[in-house]
Design a protein around this nucleic acid. Structure first.
Length: 202
DNA sequence: GGTAGGATGGGCT
DNA sequence: GCCCATCCTACCC
């Protein structure tokens, strides 16, 4: 690599101001950057709101879910299972709910720092191979809830060079409602995708 | 290779 | 009081 932050342009707000499923699919292969750490997005899930009871926003606007109804291109970070944070990116036009859960990254930059934050990870591919793991690896927490991801220290960029990959689709992980909707998207065969062989078929 | 059980605390009914 | 958009460890093939 020629420099630690040599990526393409930041994704603009118009990228996010679209259908949640479309954005979920197109985020694969983009690079999530926070400070000096970065990873390529290899797994996402769509949470379109409305009648999708698995979506936090399906029960309406609350203090927690307010950001999901706000302008696109912002981060929705929530606390789960008493110890982890999950990162979502808000989609759809302002006023309409919809967000994408970023579920896994392939580490690209700042790997030594990520290792220090993820002492239990044995391999580089496991540093950010899950929604709770990637927020630890990139030090994303409640401070980032509501921030604009089209400018500032937490952004999504085009990759330095585009790679070809096959996209697979399946049911979302860890939910109890709407379990049959195929709203999980991942890069086929990528070692950083969460879940392993049983879930992903490789 | 695989899985069962526990950690741990905010959000909402 | 119950429900989680999870992860890690121990343990078992």
């Amino acid at each position: 690599m020629y420099g630690p932050m040599r990526f393409g342009p930041i994704l603009k707000r118009e990228f996010y101001a679209r259908d949640t499923l479309e954005v979920s699919r197109e985020l694969l292969g983009k690079v999530l950057v926070h400070g000096t750490t970065a990873g390529m997005i290899v797994e996402t899930e769509a949470y379109p709101g409305g009648d999708d009871l698995a979506s936090h926003s399906s029960r309406g606007i609350t203090p927690r879910t307010r950001v999901i109804f706000g302008p696109p291109g912002h981060a929705y970070v929530y606390f789960i299972y008493g110890m982890y944070q999950c990162l979502n990116l808000v989609c759809e036009p302002d006023g309409k709910a919809g967000c994408v859960l970023v579920r896994a990254l392939e580490p690209v930059a700042g790997i030594p720092i990520m290792k220090s934050r993820r002492a239990s990870a044995r391999k580089v591919e496991d540093l950010a191979s899950g929604p709770g793991k990637l927020t630890l690896a990139l030090a994303i927490g409640p401070q980032q809830n509501g921030v604009d991801v089209t400018r500032g220290s937490l952004v999504v960029r085009e990759p330095a060079e585009k790679r070809k990959f096959e996209i697979r689709v399946g049911p979302r992980i860890g939910i109890s409602q709407c379990v049959d909707r195929p709203l999980r998207f991942f890069v086929a065969g990528n070692r950083s995708v969460s879940g392993g062989k049983a879930v992903n078929g490789f």
